[in-house]
């Protein structure tokens, strides 16, 4: 009994704040600051963009013209025309083609890495894919200019190779690695017991993948594709270099186009701060922001859906 009481009076650690306690506190603080500052930066950027362009976008910009006119003549005096249709179609067509390229590539690669490759081969492939993802976009643009461009001219016998086709292929190759990585994560999250149970039923490898693995990884795969789309929308440098950068409503993949992002990148440096042109470019920025925000939100919802079902 007395043992017990003595024990109680000196419970170790009850009110001594040891070094591990302090480290815990410090770590919490650092993590908190990191998290908060990320949020602060994002909010600050958003406020900045909104401040520069939102008023103009809402009150001055003629939305009818912006959404329906293909005329982007921001510097014509005295009446500049801010028609965004050609730019929107340019971005959409390049991104669309990029997805046609990237989705089969990345899903195929993810299925191969996740389901078929084993041991060493698998590790090497994963590292390779991550390396590909790290190639800077200007390098991809360079490849578009110097490799894909002459290739298209030769193959299809057309005068210019800096077209939707070029930019789409480049963008597709560029988005594929990151999509592969995310899709592979989604496949890896499918428990092996599912595969084993399906194989025990007599399913072939492909049947297992088709009937069990892909359906249960569906949300993650959708998220991978959506993030790829977001990447395509937001990409600037490679598209600027490979698309031909001419304002044009395209009628075929062999037409040059100009993307929303590339327009901002190319023109912002030459506008007077606060001018209509400057604000119009920020309006484009807001549009891009809204689109990518929506896409990321959808991707997030898709991933969440996956978690909830478990």
């Amino acid at each position: 009994m007395s043992e017990f009481n003595r024990g109680r009076r000196t419970v170790p650690g009850a009110d001594t704040l040891g070094s591990s306690w302090w480290w815990d506190r410090i770590a919490q603080g650092v993590v908190f600051l990191g998290g908060i500052s990320a949020i602060v930066f994002i909010v600050a950027i958003f406020i900045f963009v909104a401040q520069q362009g939102l008023g103009f976008a809402i009150f001055e910009l003629d939305k009818g013209v912006f959404l329906t006119s293909p005329e982007w003549r921001p510097t014509t005096e005295p009446e500049p025309v801010f028609g965004g249709l050609a730019l929107i179609v340019g971005t959409a067509s390049v991104t669309g083609l990029a997805m046609l390229v990237a989705v089969p590539f990345s899903l195929g690669a993810a299925i191969f890495i996740g389901e078929f490759a084993t041991g060493r081969a698998r590790e090497y492939l994963k590292v390779l894919v991550e390396l590909l993802a790290a190639i800077p976009s200007v390098v991809w643009g360079f490849i578009g200019l110097t490799v894909v461009n002459p290739l298209i001219i030769d193959l299809f016998n057309v005068p210019v190779g800096l077209t939707i086709l070029n930019a789409g292929v480049i963008l597709g190759l560029m988005a594929a690695p990151i999509m592969t990585t995310i899709a592979e994560d989604a496949l890896k999250a499918v428990p092996d017991s599912y595969r084993e149970a399906a194989e025990a039923l007599g399913a072939t490898r492909w049947q297992v993948i088709r009937q069990v693995v892909l359906p249960s990884a569906k949300n993650g795969l959708v998220a991978a594709i959506l993030l790829g789309v977001g990447r395509g929308f937001g990409e600037t440098m490679a598209v600027l270099m490979a698309s031909g950068h001419s304002v044009n409503l395209p009628t075929s993949p062999f037409d040059s186009v100009r993307a929303l992002t590339a327009t901002i990148a190319a023109e912002l440096g030459e506008t007077a701060r606060g001018s209509e042109h400057y604000k119009a470019l920020f309006s484009i920025g807001i549009l891009l922001f809204l689109v990518t925000f929506t896409i990321n939100l959808l991707a997030d919802v898709a991933v969440r859906g996956r978690r909830k079902r478990r």
Partner: peptide, 29 residues
């Protein structure tokens, strides 16, 4: 061979399918 041998594991492995699909999977295959 495997389709002639049914297996029941120690912990139930409900495939991520509906009840109907779980049972219909093997006949479908």
């Amino acid at each position: 061979l495997r389709s002639r041998i049914g297996v029941v594991f120690p912990l139930p492995v409900g495939l991520p399918l509906t009840i109907y699909e779980n049972v219909a999977l093997s006949p479908r295959l």
